[in-house]
Design a binder for these strands. Structure first.
Lengths: 224, 224
DNA sequence: ACAATAGTGTCTCTTAGACAATATCGA
DNA sequence: TCGATATTGTCTAAGAGACACTATTGT
């Protein structure tokens, strides 16, 4: 049996400048050395308990980030996707607030708008598209987008995040009802006064119990 | 780098005797030779274009079935799941009407209620649970269950399928409105007269265009 | 005619969305 | 006080579910 190249890739997404952006790194090794690509690497059976552990390791080693939300996206495989031969990549996506993304070690960690990535090697463009679709879809009926916000945030900020992801405005009253129904947020004493020449908004944070757990709704946040 | 055992497994589900049942086969080879397990096998890089092709091949060779609906479920991997070593299984689930399941070749194709499977090797119990959860969840907002029906079926039959999967009754009027909104069915001339000492029901079939494409709804078929 | 289930009309109640009133800040 | 945005109250409209009526078959 010819060998199968077994890897993991991580689609690390964040929200910046009004849109989803993805972390790409310059590849250190052939093939495509020096080309921007998703953070990825071989699975190390001796080191990784499973593929998810491999993804966590790759993400940590290459970007310095430990994401609270990391979920398996899908596995991409086949003969044509890697010039070295038949390959298989178990892909995971992660969501982080863009503030946590900095440069780690020797690798240059850079963000690129998901709609503007060009010239990616392998099938990384398709993988990113799948991740974006998953995130947008899941945002329509879950609390997933809270992971794109920082530790604390206001409801108008969170609503803006949802609206960016869904690509359409959401009714303010309905949005607040939905978030209230999720029952995953708790107010932080002390309002947000910063930039505004206006009434400050209440700051919220995730209830501790929900730090890694999504809340779902049957009906959708924006039935449009 | 130690080797990674790369396989595919198929969770072939059908509805029978009022519940979901899964196809299990007696394993031909070690480990666990003779034990009931999911149909699965090694990926053959020389033969399979990708993992999905491998799953189709495994399903066809071991059960004789070519399922119109085959979707990647997830990839299960790790050190402990296979006594031979670090293994990785890309899992696919398929839905078929139970009429198409017969014995193929030398292998005994048998159905087992998903809630009553015991003593499965590897992590197959967990894989089946994940597939069942996916199917039930997807049934709540999509037309997925039509693949559990035969070529033609009546709306009351389809509703019964949904009710079995969701585990709760559905309002008849709402159900018909939802199915109508999907716009994926067309009536077949000629009613279903068979057993009934009552008004026969109209037979429907999937519109050809939707033979492999699901229809989704925002609101859920049963908001319960 | 009767029993049984299919199919349809309609009313009600829930809830999403529109609208608008009030609250609270900086300038 | 004015401008701006946050937060809350309330009305309206769309849609889901309840109910019941009509339709069509076998016995």
């Amino acid at each position: 049996m010819p060998d199968i190249i077994s890897t993991v890739d991580v689609i690390l997404l964040t929200l910046k400048d009004g849109g989803l952006q993805v972390v790409l790194l310059e590849r250190e090794h052939e093939p495509y050395a020096g080309v921007l690509a998703l953070p990825g690497g071989y699975i190390h059976p001796g080191e990784d308990a499973d593929a998810e552990a491999a993804a966590e390791r790759v993400l940590r080693d290459k970007t310095g980030i430990v994401s609270p939300y990391l979920e398996q996206l899908a596995t991409f495989s086949g003969r044509g996707r890697d010039p070295r031969g038949w390959s298989l990549s178990v892909c995971y996506y992660a969501l982080v607030p863009h503030g946590v993304i900095g440069n780690a070690g020797r690798t240059q960690v850079s963000l690129y708008p998901v709609d503007a990535v060009r010239g990616l090697p392998f099938d990384h463009a398709r993988i990113i598209a799948a991740a974006v679709e998953r995130v947008k879809n899941k945002s329509s009926y879950s609390s997933l987008p809270v992971y794109l916000c920082g530790e604390t945030f206001t409801l108008p900020q969170l609503q803006a995040v949802y609206e960016t992801l869904l690509g359409e405005p959401i009714n303010k009253v309905s949005f607040r009802r939905k978030i209230e129904a999720f029952d995953i947020l708790e107010p932080v004493r002390g309002a947000l006064a910063t930039g505004g020449a206006h009434r400050p908004a209440q700051l919220y944070r995730l209830k501790p119990r929900y730090h890694k757990q999504l809340s779902l709704t049957d009906r959708g946040l924006n039935a449009g």
